[in-house]
Design a binder for these strands. Structure first.
Lengths: 220, 220
DNA sequence: AATATTTTTTAGGTTTGTCTAAACATTTAT
DNA sequence: ATAAATGTTTAGACAAACCTAAAAAATATT
Protein backbone atom coordinates (compact mmCIF):
# COMPACT_ATOMS: atom_id res chain seq x y z
CA UNK A 1 0.00 0.00 0.00
CA UNK A 2 1.44 3.35 -1.05
CA UNK A 3 0.48 6.21 1.26
CA UNK A 4 0.97 9.96 0.94
CA UNK A 5 2.65 11.87 3.76
CA UNK A 6 -0.70 13.27 4.68
CA UNK A 7 -2.36 9.86 4.87
CA UNK A 8 0.53 8.64 6.98
CA UNK A 9 0.10 11.51 9.41
CA UNK A 10 -3.58 10.71 9.82
CA UNK A 11 -2.91 7.03 10.41
CA UNK A 12 -0.15 7.67 12.89
CA UNK A 13 -2.27 10.15 14.80
CA UNK A 14 -5.29 7.87 14.89
CA UNK A 15 -3.05 5.14 16.26
CA UNK A 16 -1.88 7.34 19.11
CA UNK A 17 -5.37 8.62 19.90
CA UNK A 18 -6.91 5.17 20.05
CA UNK A 19 -4.06 3.76 22.13
CA UNK A 20 -6.38 3.10 25.01
CA UNK A 21 -9.05 1.23 23.16
CA UNK A 22 -11.76 3.79 22.41
CA UNK A 23 -12.84 4.88 18.98
CA UNK A 24 -11.54 8.26 17.81
CA UNK A 25 -13.75 11.26 17.06
CA UNK A 26 -13.55 13.72 14.19
CA UNK A 27 -12.98 16.67 16.50
CA UNK A 28 -10.25 14.96 18.50
CA UNK A 29 -8.33 14.15 15.35
CA UNK A 30 -8.90 17.64 13.94
CA UNK A 31 -7.46 19.17 17.07
CA UNK A 32 -4.46 16.86 17.08
CA UNK A 33 -3.65 17.48 13.42
CA UNK A 34 -4.43 21.21 13.59
CA UNK A 35 -6.98 20.90 10.79
CA UNK A 36 -10.69 21.57 10.36
CA UNK A 37 -13.20 18.79 11.06
CA UNK A 38 -14.37 18.91 7.44
CA UNK A 39 -10.90 17.94 6.28
CA UNK A 40 -10.88 14.99 8.65
CA UNK A 41 -14.13 13.68 7.24
CA UNK A 42 -12.75 13.96 3.70
CA UNK A 43 -9.61 12.05 4.52
CA UNK A 44 -11.46 9.39 6.46
CA UNK A 45 -13.50 8.56 3.42
CA UNK A 46 -10.28 8.00 1.54
CA UNK A 47 -8.79 5.85 4.28
CA UNK A 48 -11.98 3.84 4.44
CA UNK A 49 -11.86 3.31 0.66
CA UNK A 50 -8.31 2.06 1.11
CA UNK A 51 -9.57 -0.32 3.81
CA UNK A 52 -7.33 1.04 6.53
CA UNK A 53 -9.97 2.21 8.99
CA UNK A 54 -13.32 1.10 10.25
CA UNK A 55 -15.52 4.17 9.91
CA UNK A 56 -19.25 4.84 10.26
CA UNK A 57 -20.37 8.44 9.67
CA UNK A 58 -21.14 10.21 12.97
CA UNK A 59 -19.89 7.14 14.88
CA UNK A 60 -16.13 7.70 15.01
CA UNK A 61 -13.48 5.40 13.66
CA UNK A 62 -10.55 3.13 14.46
CA UNK A 63 -7.75 1.49 12.54
CA UNK A 64 -8.36 -2.04 11.34
CA UNK A 65 -5.61 -4.66 11.05
CA UNK A 66 -4.16 -3.24 7.88
CA UNK A 67 -4.26 0.27 9.30
CA UNK A 68 -2.56 -0.77 12.50
CA UNK A 69 0.17 -2.49 10.53
CA UNK A 70 0.70 0.68 8.53
CA UNK A 71 0.79 2.78 11.71
CA UNK A 72 3.42 0.55 13.27
CA UNK A 73 5.54 0.87 10.14
CA UNK A 74 5.39 4.65 10.34
CA UNK A 75 6.13 4.68 14.06
CA UNK A 76 9.03 2.32 13.48
CA UNK A 77 10.53 4.72 10.96
CA UNK A 78 9.91 7.72 13.18
CA UNK A 79 11.55 6.22 16.23
CA UNK A 80 14.51 4.74 14.38
CA UNK A 81 15.27 8.15 12.92
CA UNK A 82 14.92 9.72 16.36
CA UNK A 83 17.40 7.23 17.70
CA UNK A 84 19.76 7.94 14.82
CA UNK A 85 19.53 11.70 15.31
CA UNK A 86 20.19 11.55 19.03
CA UNK A 87 22.73 8.73 19.09
CA UNK A 88 24.74 9.32 15.94
CA UNK A 89 24.24 12.98 15.07
CA UNK A 90 24.23 14.13 18.70
CA UNK A 91 21.00 16.07 18.59
CA UNK A 92 19.40 16.91 21.92
CA UNK A 93 16.52 14.61 22.72
CA UNK A 94 14.00 17.43 22.39
CA UNK A 95 15.09 18.36 18.85
CA UNK A 96 14.75 14.95 17.26
CA UNK A 97 10.98 14.72 17.03
CA UNK A 98 10.46 17.53 14.51
CA UNK A 99 13.11 16.24 12.11
CA UNK A 100 11.92 12.65 12.43
CA UNK A 101 8.47 13.88 11.39
CA UNK A 102 9.94 14.56 7.99
CA UNK A 103 12.27 11.60 7.71
CA UNK A 104 9.56 9.11 8.64
CA UNK A 105 7.85 9.65 5.28
CA UNK A 106 10.80 8.36 3.29
CA UNK A 107 9.39 4.95 2.71
CA UNK A 108 12.06 2.66 1.30
CA UNK A 109 11.66 -0.57 3.23
CA UNK A 110 15.25 -1.51 2.65
CA UNK A 111 16.43 1.86 3.99
CA UNK A 112 14.56 1.38 7.25
CA UNK A 113 15.79 -2.14 7.76
CA UNK A 114 19.40 -1.24 7.02
CA UNK A 115 19.13 1.76 9.33
CA UNK A 116 17.81 -0.54 12.04
CA UNK A 117 20.79 -2.86 11.58
CA UNK A 118 23.24 0.05 11.52
CA UNK A 119 21.86 1.31 14.82
CA UNK A 120 22.12 -2.15 16.38
CA UNK A 121 18.39 -2.96 16.51
CA UNK A 122 17.56 -0.49 19.28
CA UNK A 123 14.47 -1.32 21.31
CA UNK A 124 13.69 2.20 22.58
CA UNK A 125 13.96 5.69 21.16
CA UNK A 126 15.53 8.64 23.02
CA UNK A 127 12.20 9.43 24.70
CA UNK A 128 11.98 5.89 26.02
CA UNK A 129 9.24 4.88 23.61
CA UNK A 130 9.56 1.36 22.20
CA UNK A 131 10.57 0.90 18.55
CA UNK A 132 8.49 -1.65 16.60
CA UNK A 133 10.68 -4.33 15.02
CA UNK A 134 10.53 -5.45 11.41
CA UNK A 135 7.34 -7.39 12.16
CA UNK A 136 5.68 -4.55 14.04
CA UNK A 137 6.30 -6.07 17.47
CA UNK A 138 7.61 -3.97 20.33
CA UNK A 139 8.18 -4.14 24.06
CA UNK A 140 5.52 -2.34 25.98
CA UNK A 141 7.66 -0.87 28.67
CA UNK A 142 11.29 -0.70 29.48
CA UNK A 143 13.32 -1.10 32.56
CA UNK A 144 16.01 1.54 32.69
CA UNK A 145 18.33 2.96 35.22
CA UNK A 146 16.93 6.10 36.79
CA UNK A 147 20.10 7.79 35.51
CA UNK A 148 18.85 7.17 31.95
CA UNK A 149 15.22 8.10 32.52
CA UNK A 150 14.38 10.98 30.17
CA UNK A 151 13.05 14.22 31.64
CA UNK A 152 9.33 14.44 32.36
CA UNK A 153 8.60 10.73 31.84
CA UNK A 154 6.60 9.25 34.66
CA UNK A 155 8.03 5.91 35.75
CA UNK A 156 7.80 3.45 38.62
CA UNK A 157 10.69 2.09 40.65
CA UNK A 158 10.91 -1.66 40.07
CA UNK A 159 14.34 -2.76 41.21
CA UNK A 160 17.47 -1.65 43.02
CA UNK A 161 20.70 -3.27 41.91
CA UNK A 162 22.71 -2.66 45.06
CA UNK A 163 21.30 -3.90 48.32
CA UNK A 164 23.94 -2.50 50.65
CA UNK A 165 22.91 -1.13 54.07
CA UNK A 166 24.01 2.35 53.02
CA UNK A 167 21.97 2.34 49.87
CA UNK A 168 18.79 1.13 51.49
CA UNK A 169 19.18 3.66 54.25
CA UNK A 170 19.52 6.41 51.69
CA UNK A 171 16.43 5.19 49.83
CA UNK A 172 14.37 5.12 52.97
CA UNK A 173 15.54 8.57 53.88
CA UNK A 174 14.42 9.88 50.46
CA UNK A 175 11.12 7.97 50.65
CA UNK A 176 11.89 5.85 47.62
CA UNK A 177 10.81 2.21 47.46
CA UNK A 178 9.76 -0.38 44.90
CA UNK A 179 6.53 0.91 43.40
CA UNK A 180 7.26 4.59 43.98
CA UNK A 181 6.17 6.71 41.02
CA UNK A 182 8.55 9.48 40.07
CA UNK A 183 9.54 11.91 37.37
CA UNK A 184 12.91 13.52 36.57
CA UNK A 185 12.56 17.31 36.67
CA UNK A 186 16.13 18.38 36.00
CA UNK A 187 19.51 16.85 35.19
CA UNK A 188 22.77 18.47 36.26
CA UNK A 189 25.54 17.49 33.91
CA UNK A 190 28.21 18.77 36.29
CA UNK A 191 27.88 15.86 38.71
CA UNK A 192 25.21 13.70 37.02
CA UNK A 193 22.88 14.41 39.91
CA UNK A 194 19.17 14.76 39.14
CA UNK A 195 16.13 16.42 40.65
CA UNK A 196 13.28 13.96 41.01
CA UNK A 197 9.67 14.68 41.85
CA UNK A 198 8.05 11.99 43.99
CA UNK A 199 4.30 12.17 44.35
CA UNK A 200 3.24 15.71 45.15
CA UNK A 201 6.38 16.66 46.99
CA UNK A 202 8.98 19.24 46.07
CA UNK A 203 11.79 17.74 43.94
CA UNK A 204 14.51 15.78 45.72
CA UNK A 205 18.10 15.73 44.54
CA UNK A 206 19.63 12.32 43.87
CA UNK A 207 23.30 11.70 43.14
CA UNK A 208 24.33 10.10 39.87
CA UNK A 209 25.79 7.21 41.84
CA UNK A 210 22.45 6.45 43.46
CA UNK A 211 20.44 7.00 40.27
CA UNK A 212 22.52 4.39 38.43
CA UNK A 213 21.43 1.77 40.95
CA UNK A 214 17.71 2.46 40.82
CA UNK A 215 15.76 0.83 38.01
CA UNK A 216 12.39 2.04 36.80
CA UNK A 217 9.72 1.07 34.29
CA UNK A 218 7.91 3.59 32.15
CA UNK A 219 4.27 3.88 33.02
CA UNK A 220 1.81 2.53 30.46
CA UNK B 1 13.46 30.60 0.91
CA UNK B 2 11.13 27.67 1.44
CA UNK B 3 10.85 25.38 -1.57
CA UNK B 4 8.54 22.47 -2.32
CA UNK B 5 10.04 19.13 -3.35
CA UNK B 6 8.85 19.81 -6.85
CA UNK B 7 10.50 23.22 -7.02
CA UNK B 8 13.69 21.69 -5.67
CA UNK B 9 13.66 19.05 -8.39
CA UNK B 10 13.31 21.70 -11.06
CA UNK B 11 16.14 23.77 -9.67
CA UNK B 12 18.45 20.83 -9.27
CA UNK B 13 17.75 19.65 -12.80
CA UNK B 14 18.23 23.11 -14.31
CA UNK B 15 21.55 23.29 -12.50
CA UNK B 16 22.74 20.04 -14.04
CA UNK B 17 21.50 20.94 -17.52
CA UNK B 18 23.17 24.32 -17.54
CA UNK B 19 26.43 22.97 -16.16
CA UNK B 20 28.26 23.93 -19.34
CA UNK B 21 27.14 27.49 -19.54
CA UNK B 22 24.27 27.50 -22.01
CA UNK B 23 20.71 28.45 -21.21
CA UNK B 24 18.27 25.56 -20.75
CA UNK B 25 15.26 24.95 -22.99
CA UNK B 26 11.73 23.98 -22.01
CA UNK B 27 11.89 20.73 -23.96
CA UNK B 28 15.22 19.68 -22.50
CA UNK B 29 13.95 20.17 -18.98
CA UNK B 30 10.66 18.43 -19.79
CA UNK B 31 12.52 15.40 -21.06
CA UNK B 32 14.82 15.30 -18.05
CA UNK B 33 11.98 15.58 -15.55
CA UNK B 34 9.67 13.26 -17.52
CA UNK B 35 6.98 15.93 -17.67
CA UNK B 36 5.13 17.80 -20.40
CA UNK B 37 6.53 21.10 -21.70
CA UNK B 38 3.39 22.91 -20.55
CA UNK B 39 4.17 21.93 -16.95
CA UNK B 40 7.68 23.31 -17.30
CA UNK B 41 6.39 26.68 -18.42
CA UNK B 42 4.00 26.79 -15.47
CA UNK B 43 6.70 26.07 -12.95
CA UNK B 44 9.17 28.47 -14.52
CA UNK B 45 6.77 31.31 -14.02
CA UNK B 46 6.68 30.40 -10.35
CA UNK B 47 10.45 30.18 -10.07
CA UNK B 48 10.77 33.51 -11.84
CA UNK B 49 8.30 35.06 -9.40
CA UNK B 50 10.48 33.70 -6.59
CA UNK B 51 13.51 35.29 -8.26
CA UNK B 52 15.43 32.05 -8.64
CA UNK B 53 15.76 31.96 -12.43
CA UNK B 54 16.31 34.36 -15.23
CA UNK B 55 13.56 33.56 -17.72
CA UNK B 56 12.27 35.20 -20.90
CA UNK B 57 9.38 33.46 -22.65
CA UNK B 58 10.58 31.53 -25.72
CA UNK B 59 14.19 32.37 -24.83
CA UNK B 60 15.11 29.65 -22.36
CA UNK B 61 16.26 30.18 -18.79
CA UNK B 62 19.10 29.84 -16.32
CA UNK B 63 19.52 29.98 -12.57
CA UNK B 64 20.53 33.32 -11.12
CA UNK B 65 22.70 33.68 -8.02
CA UNK B 66 19.94 32.83 -5.60
CA UNK B 67 18.89 29.84 -7.69
CA UNK B 68 22.42 28.53 -7.93
CA UNK B 69 22.82 28.81 -4.18
CA UNK B 70 19.60 26.84 -3.71
CA UNK B 71 20.76 24.19 -6.21
CA UNK B 72 24.07 23.74 -4.41
CA UNK B 73 22.21 23.27 -1.13
CA UNK B 74 20.04 20.55 -2.65
CA UNK B 75 23.00 18.84 -4.27
CA UNK B 76 24.88 18.99 -0.98
CA UNK B 77 22.03 17.20 0.77
CA UNK B 78 21.68 14.64 -2.00
CA UNK B 79 25.34 13.71 -2.05
CA UNK B 80 25.78 13.65 1.70
CA UNK B 81 22.87 11.21 1.97
CA UNK B 82 24.35 9.12 -0.84
CA UNK B 83 27.60 8.99 1.06
CA UNK B 84 25.79 8.01 4.25
CA UNK B 85 23.82 5.27 2.52
CA UNK B 86 26.85 3.72 0.89
CA UNK B 87 29.36 4.23 3.67
CA UNK B 88 27.30 3.66 6.81
CA UNK B 89 24.32 1.60 5.68
CA UNK B 90 26.31 -0.47 3.17
CA UNK B 91 24.07 0.11 0.20
CA UNK B 92 25.54 -0.66 -3.22
CA UNK B 93 26.59 2.47 -5.03
CA UNK B 94 23.89 2.01 -7.66
CA UNK B 95 21.06 1.91 -5.09
CA UNK B 96 21.85 5.12 -3.27
CA UNK B 97 20.67 7.62 -5.84
CA UNK B 98 16.96 6.76 -5.71
CA UNK B 99 16.78 6.92 -1.93
CA UNK B 100 18.81 10.13 -1.77
CA UNK B 101 16.25 11.66 -4.15
CA UNK B 102 13.77 11.42 -1.30
CA UNK B 103 16.05 12.28 1.58
CA UNK B 104 17.41 15.40 -0.11
CA UNK B 105 14.08 17.15 0.39
CA UNK B 106 14.28 17.01 4.17
CA UNK B 107 15.48 20.52 4.60
CA UNK B 108 16.61 21.06 8.19
CA UNK B 109 19.83 22.99 7.87
CA UNK B 110 21.08 21.69 11.19
CA UNK B 111 20.42 18.11 10.14
CA UNK B 112 22.53 18.46 7.02
CA UNK B 113 25.40 20.11 8.83
CA UNK B 114 25.41 17.53 11.61
CA UNK B 115 25.25 14.74 9.07
CA UNK B 116 28.22 16.29 7.30
CA UNK B 117 30.18 16.34 10.55
CA UNK B 118 29.16 12.77 11.41
CA UNK B 119 30.40 11.58 8.03
CA UNK B 120 33.70 13.39 8.49
CA UNK B 121 33.13 16.18 5.92
CA UNK B 122 33.47 13.95 2.87
CA UNK B 123 34.52 15.69 -0.35
CA UNK B 124 33.11 13.19 -2.84
CA UNK B 125 30.04 10.98 -3.01
CA UNK B 126 30.12 7.27 -3.93
CA UNK B 127 29.84 8.12 -7.63
CA UNK B 128 32.88 10.37 -7.38
CA UNK B 129 30.86 13.57 -7.64
CA UNK B 130 32.03 16.40 -5.39
CA UNK B 131 29.94 17.37 -2.35
CA UNK B 132 29.40 21.13 -1.86
CA UNK B 133 30.51 22.31 1.57
CA UNK B 134 28.47 24.41 3.96
CA UNK B 135 29.21 27.49 1.82
CA UNK B 136 28.38 25.80 -1.47
CA UNK B 137 32.01 25.34 -2.48
CA UNK B 138 33.25 22.05 -3.91
CA UNK B 139 36.26 20.60 -5.69
CA UNK B 140 35.64 20.32 -9.37
CA UNK B 141 37.09 16.95 -10.03
CA UNK B 142 38.77 14.20 -8.21
CA UNK B 143 41.80 12.14 -8.88
CA UNK B 144 41.20 8.47 -8.08
CA UNK B 145 42.86 5.20 -8.72
CA UNK B 146 41.42 3.42 -11.74
CA UNK B 147 40.66 0.58 -9.34
CA UNK B 148 38.18 2.90 -7.58
CA UNK B 149 36.62 4.44 -10.68
CA UNK B 150 32.89 3.66 -10.64
CA UNK B 151 31.35 1.82 -13.58
CA UNK B 152 30.37 3.86 -16.62
CA UNK B 153 32.10 7.07 -15.54
CA UNK B 154 34.20 8.54 -18.28
CA UNK B 155 37.59 9.61 -16.95
CA UNK B 156 41.00 10.64 -18.21
CA UNK B 157 44.31 9.09 -17.17
CA UNK B 158 46.36 11.76 -15.40
CA UNK B 159 49.09 9.94 -13.51
CA UNK B 160 50.78 6.57 -13.03
CA UNK B 161 52.25 5.95 -9.62
CA UNK B 162 54.75 3.30 -10.59
CA UNK B 163 57.21 4.09 -13.32
CA UNK B 164 58.90 0.69 -13.59
CA UNK B 165 59.94 -0.63 -17.01
CA UNK B 166 57.43 -3.45 -16.76
CA UNK B 167 54.53 -1.18 -15.95
CA UNK B 168 55.23 1.25 -18.74
CA UNK B 169 55.63 -1.60 -21.19
CA UNK B 170 52.28 -2.97 -20.16
CA UNK B 171 50.63 0.44 -20.54
CA UNK B 172 52.06 0.90 -24.01
CA UNK B 173 50.90 -2.55 -24.97
CA UNK B 174 47.37 -1.71 -23.87
CA UNK B 175 47.50 1.73 -25.55
CA UNK B 176 47.07 3.60 -22.30
CA UNK B 177 48.87 6.89 -21.71
CA UNK B 178 48.40 10.13 -19.82
CA UNK B 179 45.38 11.80 -21.39
CA UNK B 180 43.71 8.57 -22.52
CA UNK B 181 39.95 8.68 -21.98
CA UNK B 182 38.44 5.49 -20.66
CA UNK B 183 35.42 3.97 -18.99
CA UNK B 184 35.09 0.89 -16.74
CA UNK B 185 32.63 -1.56 -18.29
CA UNK B 186 32.82 -4.42 -15.81
CA UNK B 187 34.47 -5.31 -12.52
CA UNK B 188 35.38 -8.88 -11.58
CA UNK B 189 35.39 -9.28 -7.85
CA UNK B 190 37.20 -12.62 -8.09
CA UNK B 191 40.57 -11.09 -8.95
CA UNK B 192 39.79 -7.33 -8.91
CA UNK B 193 40.46 -7.19 -12.63
CA UNK B 194 38.35 -4.81 -14.69
CA UNK B 195 37.20 -4.45 -18.30
CA UNK B 196 37.97 -0.99 -19.61
CA UNK B 197 36.76 0.59 -22.82
CA UNK B 198 39.31 2.88 -24.45
CA UNK B 199 38.06 5.08 -27.26
CA UNK B 200 35.95 3.04 -29.68
CA UNK B 201 37.74 -0.22 -29.10
CA UNK B 202 36.45 -3.43 -27.59
CA UNK B 203 37.00 -3.55 -23.80
CA UNK B 204 40.47 -4.47 -22.55
CA UNK B 205 41.02 -6.41 -19.34
CA UNK B 206 43.27 -4.80 -16.74
CA UNK B 207 44.53 -6.54 -13.61
CA UNK B 208 43.70 -5.12 -10.20
CA UNK B 209 47.41 -4.62 -9.60
CA UNK B 210 47.77 -2.43 -12.66
CA UNK B 211 44.52 -0.54 -12.05
CA UNK B 212 45.70 0.49 -8.60
CA UNK B 213 48.67 2.26 -10.12
CA UNK B 214 46.77 4.22 -12.74
CA UNK B 215 45.19 7.47 -11.62
CA UNK B 216 42.37 9.19 -13.44
CA UNK B 217 40.29 12.35 -13.23
CA UNK B 218 36.58 12.43 -13.85
CA UNK B 219 35.67 14.30 -16.98
CA UNK B 220 33.96 17.65 -16.52
C1' DA C 1 10.66 35.58 -48.50
C1' DA C 2 7.08 32.53 -47.79
C1' DT C 3 5.80 28.29 -45.95
C1' DA C 4 6.43 24.24 -43.15
C1' DT C 5 8.10 22.42 -38.92
C1' DT C 6 9.30 22.58 -34.31
C1' DT C 7 9.15 24.67 -29.88
C1' DT C 8 6.87 27.14 -26.41
C1' DT C 9 3.04 29.14 -24.31
C1' DT C 10 -1.88 29.70 -23.15
C1' DA C 11 -6.36 28.08 -21.83
C1' DG C 12 -8.91 25.10 -19.50
C1' DG C 13 -9.27 20.59 -16.88
C1' DT C 14 -7.93 16.99 -13.01
C1' DT C 15 -6.36 15.33 -8.45
C1' DT C 16 -4.89 15.94 -3.71
C1' DG C 17 -5.53 18.09 0.38
C1' DT C 18 -7.04 21.80 2.38
C1' DC C 19 -10.69 25.48 3.60
C1' DT C 20 -15.58 28.01 4.81
C1' DA C 21 -20.34 28.01 5.27
C1' DA C 22 -24.47 25.63 5.48
C1' DA C 23 -27.03 21.42 6.45
C1' DC C 24 -27.74 17.53 9.14
C1' DA C 25 -27.20 14.18 13.40
C1' DT C 26 -26.55 13.45 17.99
C1' DT C 27 -26.38 14.66 22.66
C1' DT C 28 -27.66 17.57 26.52
C1' DA C 29 -30.65 20.44 29.07
C1' DT C 30 -34.93 22.15 30.24
C1' DA D 1 -40.25 15.27 24.80
C1' DT D 2 -38.82 19.05 22.79
C1' DA D 3 -35.41 22.78 22.21
C1' DA D 4 -30.72 24.18 22.42
C1' DA D 5 -26.06 23.10 21.95
C1' DT D 6 -22.54 20.46 20.06
C1' DG D 7 -20.46 17.57 16.77
C1' DT D 8 -20.20 15.84 11.96
C1' DT D 9 -20.92 15.84 7.19
C1' DT D 10 -21.93 17.89 2.66
C1' DA D 11 -21.35 21.30 -0.90
C1' DG D 12 -18.64 24.29 -3.14
C1' DA D 13 -14.01 26.84 -3.51
C1' DC D 14 -8.95 27.18 -3.76
C1' DA D 15 -3.81 26.32 -4.48
C1' DA D 16 -0.26 23.24 -6.16
C1' DA D 17 1.29 20.52 -9.65
C1' DC D 18 0.29 18.13 -13.09
C1' DC D 19 -2.27 17.14 -17.77
C1' DT D 20 -4.33 17.76 -23.05
C1' DA D 21 -5.41 20.47 -26.92
C1' DA D 22 -5.03 24.63 -29.34
C1' DA D 23 -2.66 28.97 -30.35
C1' DA D 24 1.45 31.60 -30.95
C1' DA D 25 6.34 32.30 -31.69
C1' DA D 26 10.73 30.88 -33.39
C1' DT D 27 13.37 28.22 -36.52
C1' DA D 28 14.18 25.60 -40.72
C1' DT D 29 13.22 24.56 -45.58
C1' DT D 30 12.52 25.41 -50.19
Amino acid sequence: MNLSSSEENYIKTIYHLQAHGETVTTNALAQQLVAKPASITDMLKKLKAKKLVHYQPYRGFRLNNEGTKAALGIIRRHRLWEFFLAEKLKFDWDEVHAIAEELEHVSSRKLVDKLDAFLGYPKFDPHGDPIPDINGRMENNQQVSLADLPLHKVATVCQVSNQSRGMLELLRHKHIAIGTKLEVKKKFSFDQSIDVKIRQQAPVNISGELAKNIFVKYDA
